[in-house]
Amino acid sequence: MSKPHDSIEAALRASEPPLADDEFSANVLARLPPRRRSTNAARKWTMAGSAALGSALTLALAGPLEAVVASISPWSIPPAVLSTVAVLTVVALPALLVLYTERTDR
C-alpha cells in the first residue's frame, strides 16, 4: 500500500514559505568590504592633471630654467629639449605612482 509514502512525498513537495527580507539585505550590505576605488578613472584624471600641470610649469619656468642651465652647462641646450625633459619628468612621476599603487592593490 502506497498511502504513507504518497503522503510523505506530498509533504516533502510542499512549498516552503518565503522569508521576508526585513533587514537581512541591509545587514549583508553593511558587512561588505569598503567600495573599491575606480582605478581606471583615477588613472585618467592623474595623467590628465599631471600633463596639464607639467605644461603650465614648463611654460612658466622655461625661461629662468634655460638661463640657469646655460650658466652652469658648458654646452648649449636648446629650450625645446629642456621643455620636453621637464614635461616628461612631471608626467612620469605621477604615472609611476599610479602604477605602483595598482600593483600593491592586487
Binding site: 522569508l19 527580507d21 537581512f24 539585505s25 550590505l29 561588505l32 567600495r35
Partner: peptide, 21 residues
C-alpha cells in the same frame, strides 16, 4: 564591472529566502 552595490543588493533580496531556508 563597477562594484555596483545596488545590483548586489538585488541579488541578495532575490535569493535570501531560499538560502536562509
Amino acid at each position: 564591472a563597477s562594484d555596483d552595490r545596488g545590483a548586489f543588493e538585488l541579488l541578495v533580496r532575490r535569493h535570501q529566502s531560499a538560502v536562509r531556508n
